[in-house]
Amino acid sequence: MSRIPSAEDVKRGVQDSVVWRSIFRPGSIYRSGYRDTSRDRALAAMNNVLYHLHPVKVKRHGLKLSYTYCLGGSSFFLFIVLTVTGIFLMFFYTPAAGTGTELAYADMQQLTTSVPFGELVRNMHRWSAHLMVLTTFLHMARVFYHGAYKPPREFNWVVGVILLLLTLLLAFTGYLLPWDQLALWAIVVGADIAGFTPVFGEEVRFLLLGGAEVGPDTLLRWYVLHVLALPFVLTIFLAVHFWRIRKDGGISGPL
């Protein structure tokens, strides 16, 4: 009668398997196990695709809540929450409006009444969006007061301002999608402001609305911008933003 393999044997067998070794890189703590040593602490950060947004070591003062207030990280996390909840909402939403085809608004009502967790997810999406505008703005203020835009971080500040503008655009395009009175008229006001652009006012307005007035074409246009185009551009700028933080020597300071 053969011996029953112990848990340790099974673990070793899995860790030595071809598949496991193909997934985890040489030196990964998932191959050789984690001991609390300097080497394994470094490997834990280095061999993880998410953690390695960060360098292996960071300046100690950057850990203090009173230095960063976690504003940049919060903005990023809210963006992830918005992506996840947004994908969920896309399953139940059709960007169609106009007489006889008021699907967008009907879907919103369905979402709040018949879809399991629909109301909760929509609430989370909306409150996260407002919160993200706020945290991004506060993050900018924090960076300013720390003088963190000074050389060599000038360009990363520029990227940050672009990210703030993109965040505002994302929030604004999303505002129209429920297609209720609140959404429609907020966008009418916003588009009218854009219409005052010198020289190209009418053209800018037409381009934004996809017509002379806010209508079904505007809804489709802003839907595509909101769920695809703007998040795509924002993600690219986010990648550059994070990359530059590391390249420019990590977090600024200490003061």
């Binding site: 409150w127 929030a171 505002y175 209720d180 609140l182 429609l184 008229w185 907020a186 806010v214």
Partner: peptide, 26 residues
């Protein structure tokens, strides 16, 4: 989000403007 619901007003109506018509808070 469990406590406070996001607003959803009546269907959009381009002929009936609310008073006041305000932009989003930002």
């Amino acid at each position: 989000s469990s406590l406070v619901d996001a607003p959803l007003q009546e269907l959009a109506n381009p002929t009936e403007s609310p008073n006041p018509a305000k932009a989003p808070w930002y």
